[in-house]
Design a protein around this nucleic acid. Structure first.
Lengths: 404, 404
DNA sequence: GGACTTCGTTCAGTAGCTTAAGAATGTGGG
DNA sequence: CCCACATTCTTAAGCTACTGAACGAAGTCC
């Protein structure tokens, strides 16, 4: 029902036999904690050693996994297994407002090559197809190894039509349709996802988060969202629109939000709000070098404010700290509601300003934490926050394929 | 890892074969939409008709399912299948502050018999064991049909020790330990869960919610919590402490909460706050007939306030409406964050006051809904809100067993 | 060199599904 | 009444992914 566009793996595979559970759990265990030996895999997955042995043999034959080294024990040494990074590839595309970013990643999520283009003015589909071709050709890899394409755009899946401020080149598109037509054009399966969920899956994949951790990725781009991964599965909600972190209410009677509600995080503390405040405050605008008459877009201006704050500009720092108070409160709500263990800040916004937001969230969460809940939540910043969406899109493809 | 106390069903059952997926999906489909024929089951579950046929035969032999009636078609009529309500039983126990409620339910969640006792002053375990015995003996059912005992207490799983206002008879207990010792004492498997999650599972079970609905049960007892069920699975979070709806922040710089944070829903709008406000406001206290010097406990006083409000008392109504504004905002946060389709109000608090909270939540959610998100969230009140915890506890047992 | 330890594989058996064919049970037409 | 026809359900054979148990492999220690 809720499988993504182009996902070629129905829940109950027709034909003979069922979807092998061993394959998925073994690959996921190796991904999260490589290198691992077969005995360790058996212990971690709960499978028998025999089952592990057979499944691993198949994975070795397929080239997904390689044996690398051994560790001495009392008896026969363990043979260590890793994912072969180059065995399978995936393309991730991030359709930002003014830039389209393409990445080609290997099986472990590492970026092999990258391409950035200005947002297309002509036919979106044509641009995507040719740019993906360029990316692959330029990196000289075997196209047959590529598993598919992940596409991320800002905002939830579905139609862009209902958003007033949709980027012009995306206006009128529907994510399902885009996915299907791109799949038809390129011949690869295409997954479409929102930026925050993709970033969460990417982080889960690249940062070796285990399925035992309840995990939330807070994503700040031109808006603010959250991707939530529990028990190794991304939460997409009833209609693929989960993660609207920006519309968590942090002030009952706050200002009206464009969504029709009041006091949403987005309107109180979103990047657009921060930038607007900076543009209209002469001091802050001067600190950040903003041109109040001709803003260069939310993302760029937000980054400028963050740079200024980092360099010591007090007014810009103040604006960010105001915003961070709200974000921290909303983050705490999410942590409390879902019993989250790990919060990762990611996306271009947090990439620029995590030095303010990170400590603010950590303070707010840890206060109640140790005192009341007897847990400890970790708050970190993604290592590749700026490009998290695109690599996340690629990780989506890897995940969906390796779970086959 | 995160299986509950006494749960006899590990994720990968040792021994021969795997956990049969067909059994679970068939039982769940019948539960949600009985009566169903075998062909319909095949269509709904994605299994083949042969698999359905075989699995159903086993279920018939076990007595879990019965054939009841047929519907004409063009050819051979369909044989309709239902759960046999009395085939399996479960006991649910709700350890409230001053009352302990016991229910015995059948397989469909219907209550067969009920027992209420004042909270024990002596040995908790002994009281539980004998009362459960009394309940079963009094209803004259076959003890062998009983699958187990579900126990619900206010607050998350784990130790009660860290809560200052824990009821005296529960103080010092840890949920794991209680479950294990009760299991040892009675010989039945025992599951322990918090009130909100149990109520959510109960509602999911009894109200025939399907797994395609993302579902949140908001529970108001002496505190306020949420149980979240997505894709048919209760979300328990990293440490079984998910659902702390009461500690969603609805006002960044709101008053300090006992949890160590600020502006939590609980402190702004929880039943305790409402009751305190009513006790200290002479007008409201008079309307509700509260004795300001000797409150009868939060639950009772809250119910009194709600009764007065329903009868037209303006001050009490005002207090509830104030509270409802906050609850509605927090509910909206949850709906937006998790893309929830269905919100059910349950627990004694909402049982008494849903006439205020229901419309308030509905208004707030539906405003942004149709305008922005193109979805439609349903807000309803549980049919058995007052006893939802106890029946939910029983439903937990049914669910865990039938998923074997 | 042989006992011991630990790791990994092989082999037979089984549960839970599949596909494919057929049996059961109704309807409607001559 | 009997015979197509439609539809539902069952049976039979086979495949796959596992399990358990025994065995082979590759080291260490004495």
């Amino acid at each position: 029902m809720r499988e993504a566009v182009g996902d070629a793996v129905p829940a109950n595979r027709p034909g003979r036999g069922r979807r092998p559970a061993a394959r998925e759990s073994i690959l996921d265990a190796i991904r999260a904690s490589e290198p691992l030996s077969r005995v360790e895999l058996a212990a971690m997955t709960g499978l028998t050693e025999a089952a592990v042995s057979m499944t691993v043999r198949r994975l070795l034959e397929e080239g997904l996994v390689v044996e690398t080294g051994r560790t001495p024990t009392g008896g026969k040494p363990r043979t260590l297994l890793r994912l072969d990074p180059a065995a399978r590839l995936a393309v991730g595309v991030y359709l930002d407002r003014d830039t389209t970013t393409y990445v080609l990643t290997g099986q472990t999520g590492g970026v092999i090559s990258r391409l950035a283009r200005p947002a297309p003015t002509g036919d979106l589909l044509e641009h995507l197809t040719t740019d993906i071709g360029t990316l692959l050709a330029g990196s000289g890899v075997d196209r047959a190894r590529c598993l598919g394409v992940g596409v991320v755009w800002p905002g939830p899946r579905g139609s862009m039509a209902r958003f007033d401020d949709a980027p012009p080149h995306l206006r009128g598109w529907d994510s399902e349709e885009l996915g299907q037509r791109l799949a038809a054009g390129t011949g690869w399966p295409v997954l479409v996802e929102n930026d925050a969920t993709a970033a969460a899956v990417g982080e889960y994949w690249v940062a070796r988060v285990g399925p035992e951790q309840a995990f939330a990725a807070l994503y700040m781009g031109s808006g603010i969202g959250a991707g939530i991964v529990v028990e190794g599965r991304a939460m997409r909600g009833g209609h693929g629109a989960a993660g609207e972190f920006g519309h968590v209410c942090v002030q009952v009677d706050g200002p009206e939000c464009w969504c029709g509600s009041r006091g949403c995080l987005e309107i109180l503390a979103g990047p657009r709000t921060v930038v607007t405040a900076a543009r209209t405050d002469p001091v802050a605008a001067a600190e950040a070098g903003l041109d109040p008459s001709a803003g260069r877009g939310v993302a760029a201006d937000f980054a400028a404010v963050a740079r200024a704050a980092r360099a010591g500009a007090p007014r810009c720092l103040g604006l960010l700290e105001d915003s961070a108070r709200y974000v921290a409160a909303a983050a705490e709500s999410v942590v409390n509601l879902l019993d989250i263990d790990l919060v990762v800040l990611t996306g271009p916004g947090f990439a620029a300003a995590s030095f303010v937001y990170g400590p603010a969230i950590m303070r707010r969460v840890s206060d109640a934490d140790t005192r009341t809940w007897g847990r400890s939540v970790t708050v970190t910043v993604s290592l590749a926050a700026a490009t998290a969406s695109a690599t996340g899109a690629a990780a989506l493809v890897l995940q969906s394929h390796l779970r086959r």
